[in-house]
Design a protein around this nucleic acid. Structure first.
Length: 946
RNA sequence: GCUGAAGUGGUGGAAUUGGUAGACACGCUGGACUUAAAAUCCAGUGGACAGUAAUGUCCGUACGGGUUCAAGUCCCGUCUUCAGUACCA
């Protein structure tokens, strides 16, 4: 008996691969290297659904393909097991995150194993493993011990900077790098107390402690980075976020803006993803312009309001200034008469949540400060306003408002009756502002009259620089990333506090292990859960964690209570796989130099402004400091599209216990209720009994059915999720159809990068292909293996090489969906040709093995091979089976056009004619200026001139 | 609003540098096998018109134009959908 028993075959080969360590990668090899990486999963509690493995299947196909091509392939997998998702699941189930994480990982591993991936599990990493996060802590220390020189665009050890301060102070640095810190000389530096020195250094370190306005999410009990907020609510859970001042660790990613931007040019990523990162970095080129406060009593002579503009050419159109409500000068410049009004306005806007402020965009609000500034060129008095359309976090938090050239300034001016000055020739601004830069001549503007945007911009900047009232400036939207989380389930900081100042724990004492505490829940007020640990202080004599009780002793100090965010561990994991067991270094130089960077990275596009940006930042930093030899971690990136679920709904008549079949709901006032898709068949018919048992409240409900007694549900495509009852579990598919069918079907669904709904209905097509493939190797009579050494026919070879060509092209282009079709066509053709030649079938198996590894291994071994099919080399495409030697024949087309036709030598006229009539052949179009290729349409050739 | 991607049968989707549009699969229809069903296999399947038939003709890739011997593909304009981003000065 020799039917295709996929369950047995798959279990057999998965065991074989594990026992033989078939996919273990060596760190050094004569072969060229290739590194294929998946974005490692968060082990959440729900387990995998069919959407999760999509990217893993694609990367696995590619990894297996590269092995066949003779590469030494690194294809590892691990778990991003620290962070909010893992912790939220623990909180929901009331279990300790350490416990749920271990359980979830076990479940994930079982599910992954069933699909037959070629992962090298000997290199598994878990970000929550102390042996792993030891190095995350180590990298944090390196960041703390480094600063960024804007002049050299590079990070250096902080000790270099201390050396410079001791010799020259920071005056030179401020001038060269445009730092805004108060100047000090070498003598002053040397006279500073240690405490003051440390405080100054925090302004330079790449990770620093500062009181900043952060995004606080009370429901999650933690602060969030900008990329963790979507539409003003938290990405995880969708809870409100408010602004709050807190002392937090931050990462100085902003100084890397330019390099992160430039690096994108070298990467093979999708244009849309690069664009997302470019927008996030948000570079804008413009100028800073300084407006000095107009003050007759000369009290505030030195107060200057710095603004940023991308339109220096419109400087003569300025009719007011607007400050953000949070601007630091608001208090100082507001006149006595305006104090109450301004105070109220500032308080009200501070109370708004991120979301309210976004929702309020159309409401124009603002208040006059009573103060005036002097225009830097015309010296005219300019009124200073406050408005919340100006953001404290961007530029300088103050704008020079040009109502004629900016719609927001225009709306503000109209709303408050501020004059609008037109500086554009022949442009009507009675209805709206004119914001296009190009194609306008500037007027009413003194020395730039008659100039275009570009010329005027240069002239104005030149003038401002001469008057010391401004300079050319580049601004980035990219903000420093908050790095503290008031959560339990994350990496502890290797930091203790002495006299209120942070101190690093020496690297040799790492890891600082996360203490085991009973109450790990976050608090709404923001006290970190680690504050509840009884043993969480640092003994500097013995270099170990000790009980809190001893604090105040001179050698025992409080430890940092916050933990690191989820993206800490995922920012460098791709290097740990290279050398996962190394106890001495996070990755050895040899391993690093061999594997270099990830050649192919596959994962979701939702990480565009988080993980993919942060890890690029860390890698650039580690490269600067000599710990890595490469500058960009991910050479090629593919974003797999999400697989969506097809939810099913029953319709209940509003206010009645009556359910109506989907075709009869028209005209009725009904409410849709999600129903578990396992109660619905492919014809959308509901199993009414199962539904009644599932939802007892409808036990006695009235069912309005079709005439034939069936009850139909309606369908809708949504994100696959437990709460929508539309989850399809890959385990079930594996049991019913096998992993090879699942793998091929997931690829067959559509283009890899496109979002698409899952529908189990079509899976039979792929499954019956595998059955046909199996049958191709077996005789129809007694079902034993029926493969011969007979030479292949010409037709057989043609089919094979056509398939080789297409499959290689498809894999190289990541069009895995079309190669599934190619296999189907090949098997159909070979069945028709009754091909049983080993010369054809063996290479076909190798070709198929990346897609359907289990069946390929089984048939491969049946053919008498002792080694795993993964060691076989990929068949090579030979063109001569498809094309023949050619000779040029001029022909004419439709009796008018003359072409040259390339055809085999020594053909008779009849043969040429039959070729032309039946095949696609390339000919050159001669009558046009440039020769073009055309395909002959059979039957339309009138004359062939030999 | 801005940026990016896309719009092809009943459905998912194929179509090298412009060259027989709808591969492959699902679904549907018919047939074979079967007591029957399932499974399996075979055939048909964009639309309209003509023909007993083989077949032929015309129309068809969101819409309107254009370039070309030839356009799903290139150019201009319009509409729609999806995704990202959003008071960024």
């Amino acid at each position: 008996m020799s039917n295709y028993h996929f369950n047995e075959i798959e279990a057999k080969w998965q065991k074989y691969w594990e026992e033989n360590q078939t996919f273990k990668a060596e760190n050094f090899s004569e072969k060229p290297k290739y590194y294929v990486l998946d974005m490692f999963p968060y082990p959440s509690g729900a387990g995998l659904h069919v959407g999760h493995p999509l990217g893993y299947i694609a990367s696995d196909i590619y990894a297996r393909y590269k092995r066949h091509q003779g590469y030494n392939v690194l294809h590892p997998q691990g778990y991003d097991s620290f962070g909010l998702p893992a912790e939220q699941y623990a909180i929901q189930t009331g279990q300790h995150p350490a416990k749920t994480t271990t359980e979830n990982i076990k479940r994930y591993r079982e599910q992954l194993d069933k699909i037959g991936f070629s992962f090298d599990w000997s290199r598994e990493v878990r970000t929550s493993d102390p042996e792993y996060y030891k190095w995350t802590q180590w990298i944090f220390i390196q960041l703390f011990e480094s600063w960024y020189c804007k002049l050299h665009e590079q990070s250096f050890p902080i000790s270099d900077l201390i050396g410079v301060f001791g010799k020259e102070g920071n005056i030179g640095l401020n001038a060269k790098c445009g730092n805004e810190l108060p100047d000090f000389s070498a003598a002053m530096w040397n006279s500073f107390s240690e405490e003051k020195k440390q405080k100054i250094l925090l302004n330079y370190r790449l990770t620093y402690l500062a009181e900043t306005e952060v995004n606080w999410c009370p429901k999650l009990g933690t602060v969030l980075a900008n990329d963790e907020i979507v539409n003003g609510v938290s990405e995880r859970g969708g809870f409100p976020v408010i602004k709050k001042k807190m002392t937090q660790w931050s990462m100085r990613i902003s100084v890397f803006g330019e390099r992160l931007l430039k690096g994108l040019e070298t990467l093979d990523w999708s244009e849309s993803l690069k664009e997302t990162q470019r927008n996030w970095i948000g570079k804008s080129v413009g100028a800073s312009v300084e407006f000095r406060l107009l003050d007759e009593k000369k009290e505030f002579k030195s107060i200057a309001i710095k603004t940023f503009t991308t339109r220096p050419d419109t400087i003569f159109g300025v009719t007011f200034l607007t400050l953000a409500p949070e601007h630091e000068l608001v208090d100082r410049i507001t006149t006595i008469d305006q104090r109450i009004e301004v105070g109220e306005y500032v308080t009200v806007s501070a109370k708004k949540t991120e979301r309210e402020r976004m929702a309020d965009v159309k409401n124009i609000t603002g208040v006059f400060t009573g103060a005036y500034a002097k225009h830097p060129i015309t010296k005219e008095p300019i009124p200073i306003w406050i408005g919340d359309y100006v953001l404290a976090g961007y530029g300088t938090g103050a704008v020079m408002a040009v109502p004629c050239g900016d719609q927001r300034d225009y709306d503000f001016a109209k709303h408050f009756g501020i004059p609008i000055k037109n500086i554009f020739e022949g442009i009507d601004i009675s209805e709206k502002a004119h914001s296009e830069k190009e194609g306008t001549i500037i007027v009413n503007s003194d020395f730039i009259n008659g100039l275009s945007y570009k010329e005027a911009t240069d002239k104005v900047i030149e003038k401002l620089e001469k008057k010391h009232r401004g300079a050319k400036e580049i601004n980035y939207r990219l903000r420093d990333a908050v790095f503290s989380r008031q959560r339990y389930w994350g990496e502890p900081f290797p930091v203790y506090y002495k006299d209120g100042l942070p101190q690093m724990i020496a690297a040799k004492h790492l890891p600082i292990r996360l203490p085991e505490i009973e109450k790990y829940l976050p608090t709404e007020t923001g006290e970190p859960p680690l504050g509840r640990a009884d043993v969480w202080a640092w003994d500097t004599n013995n270099n170990k964690i000790v009980s809190n009780e001893h604090i105040d002793n001179i050698i025992i100090f409080p430890l940092e209570l916050n933990t690191m965010p989820g993206w800490a561990g995922s920012s460098w994991y791709m290097f740990r796989y290279m050398d996962a067991l190394n106890k001495e270094e996070f990755v050895s130089k040899e391993a690093m130099d061999y594997w270099e960077n990830v050649d192919l990275y596959i994962g979701g596009s939702e990480h565009a402004t988080g993980h993919l940006l942060y890890s690029r930042f860390w890698v650039k930093f580690l490269k600067d400091r000599g710990f890595l030899s490469i500058d960009e971690p991910f050479k090629k990136l593919i974003n797999q599209g999400m697989i969506l679920g097809e939810s099913a709904f029953v319709h209940r008549v509003e206010g009645e216990n009556k359910l109506v079949t989907s075709r009869q709901i028209e005209g009725l006032n009904t409410q849709s209720i999600h129903v578990d898709i396992s109660f619905v068949n492919t014809s959308n018919e509901l199993d009414i009994e199962a539904f009644k048992n599932w939802r007892p409240e409808y036990k006695d409900a009235e069912f309005i059915t079709e005439e034939d007694g069936t009850f139909k549900v309606s369908r809708e495509v949504e994100k696959m999720s437990k709460s929508k009852y539309n989850v399809v579990n890959p385990d079930d598919i594996c049991t019913q159809y096998g992993a090879d069918t699942l793998r091929m079907y997931e690829m067959f669904l559509g283009p890899l990068e496109q979002a698409k709904p899952w529908s189990t209905a079509g899976i039979t097509g792929v499954h019956s292909f595998l059955k046909k493939m199996w049958r191709l190797f077996h005789s129809g009579v007694d079902e034993s293996l029926f493969v011969t050494d007979k030479p292949a026919s010409k037709d057989n070879l043609k089919t094979l090489h056509k398939t080789i060509k297409k499959v290689i092209e498809d894999i190289e282009n990541f069009s895995f969906n079309t190669s599934v079709s190619t296999f189907m066509i090949a098997v159909n053709e070979l069945s028709t040709q009754k091909c049983n030649s080993k010369e054809i079938l063996a290479p076909l198996l190798v070709l198929l093995s990346p897609y359907a590894p289990h069946i390929s291994e089984e048939l491969w071994s049946k053919l008498g091979n002792k080694e795993s099919i993964s060691t076989a080399s990929f068949p090579k495409f030979k063109e001569n089976f498809l094309l023949e030697e050619v000779k040029k024949y001029p022909i004419s087309f439709n009796g008018k056009m003359r072409f040259t036709l390339e055809l085999p030598l020594d053909l008779s006229k009849d043969e040429i004619e039959s070729v032309v009539m039946s095949h696609e052949k390339t000919i050159h179009y001669l009558e046009g200026r440039t020769p073009k290729k055309v395909i002959i349409v059979p039957g339309k050739i009138v004359n062939i001139v030999a």
